[in-house]
Design a protein around this nucleic acid. Structure first.
Ligand code: MN
Ligand code: MN
Ligand code: MN
Ligand code: MN
Lengths: 243, 243
DNA sequence: CTCATATTTTAGGTACTCCAAAAATAGCAT
DNA sequence: ATGCTATTTTTGGAGTACCTAAAATATGAG
């Protein structure tokens, strides 16, 4: 029947696809962590992937041998061009799949991350292309994150957390963090806090307190933690002029 | 991110899903082989899976320990109820996915087997259900094979190879064997030999020679090998009565 | 220079494979 | 029925890809 291992078993192996779940996931993790701070240390990867540091070290050594990362002992790793390419490829898969599950199969935005995290490693390039085509070559995933292009280019959006805004500011939701937190996603959807929504800050309680926002003419009070996960871009304050 | 191994790593493991690529594929292979002859021997499995007999023996021992097969040394294996359930589940996934790739994403029937062979192991029950629903709960896959129900019931179709028919007989194509042979599938499609098509045998050359069939008013000559892969049911000879 | 902390190394485990040697069975001749 | 060979199956040893746990070592703060 299958044999995903066909290329790796025995001695020769490694045709052109240096794929495999684990490798791809490490590269993806490193890519994400590098966006926050570079180089990426062993312990940050271990924490993110929920494995022990020793496991990370040995995987890093493998990745370095495959020229997917640059590795300096006791210092950290950075992705090589080849490693970046793989990471972006996987992220493209992930985000296309999330959107497809919602658009084509009726899933909700809190249900798709887990399944996408598995499928991202096993779809062929042809299937990726068909999915992209079926979705009309979308730019953003359901959580507002940009989908890298087939060529491996990702246009990241400049945004700031909702929690950083002051009263009176109008903003549009760009994307949400923690898309693996289903419970939070359900809560956000309930409040109408989804990408594209426009809101205005009414009140900000001090000391990381709750903020009051107006959205769709409704006033909502949300906690600081949630507000930190919602990334927004500022909108010009409105005051629609009557003609 | 992911961690398909989350449940198996370390010591405890095995929540409810005794899944995993290899195990599922062995069970599927055994199921298929058991339809031809039971018990299923080590060497038949080895040949079907293209691994060495020694590998099969050790996997069989594992499966037996998991109560997925009954194993008698030097004799053969049969699936237990639990093993049958897993096999049918995987076959259901496979066939639903093949159909979905064609119906929803525009693949052709010669392109889907390989991708389905991988995806079958990684779709959740929820995704399976959504795919089935999107296809309106289909009974047959694109190659004419029955799709087992969610409860694990498969209604197999009584059919005989086209190559077994005599001249003059009319028949309807039920399904084709070797759905992993893309080249053959493309050739069959070209000739119009797809499930549901009705044809009439015009001539049969002796000694496993070619047969001439009429299909869609066209006369076609096909080799014995191909004809053996096309499974048909007999149709009453027609002679449409003019009113 | 010393020590806490992060990191790497080492050793050991599971899953899956291959190869080669040993054991069991089956086919067949007598 | 008995024995012998050809075939199949099992066993044992090994290798890769993960992982953990625990011991050894590098780093940099004070
Ligand atoms: Mn996601
Ligand atoms: Mn993943
Ligand atoms: Mn198939
Ligand atoms: Mn498979």
């Amino acid at each position: 029947m299958p044999k995903i291992n066909a290329l790796e078993t025995g001695s020769s192996e490694q045709r052109n696809s240096l794929n495999h779940q684990a490798i791809e996931d490490y590269l993806k993790t490193i890519y994400m962590l590098a966006m926050e701070e570079t180089p990426v240390t062993t312990s940050r990867i271990a924490e993110a992937r929920d494995v022990k540091p020793g496991s990370v070290t040995s995987m890093i050594q493998r990745l370095a041998k495959l020229h997917l990362v640059n590795y300096e002992k006791h210092y950290g790793v950075t992705l090589t061009d080849a490693g970046t390419k793989v990471a972006l490829e996987v992220i493209r898969h992930h985000r296309l799949i999330e959107l497809f599950l919602i658009e084509a199969l009726g899933f909700t935005w809190d249900e798709v991350h887990e399944q996408a995290d598995i499928l991202e490693h096993v779809i062929s390039e042809k299937l990726e292309e068909r999915i992209a085509a079926a979705l009309n070559y979308p730019q953003f995933d359901p959580h507002g994150n940009p989908i890298p292009s087939r060529e491996g280019v990702m246009h990241s959006v400049e945004a700031e957390p909702l929690s950083a805004l002051a009263a009176g500011v109008r903003a549009r939701i760009a994307y949400v963090l923690n898309d693996e937190n289903s419970e939070m996603l359900r809560y956000l959807a309930e409040l109408g806090l989804t990408p594209g929504a426009v809101l205005e800050i009414k009140q900000v309680a001090p000391f990381a307190g709750p903020l009051t926002v107006e959205i769709e003419k409704e006033s909502r009070v949300i906690g600081h933690t949630i507000a930190s996960a919602v990334m927004v871009t500022r909108e010009p304050a409105d005051e629609p002029v009557a003609p």
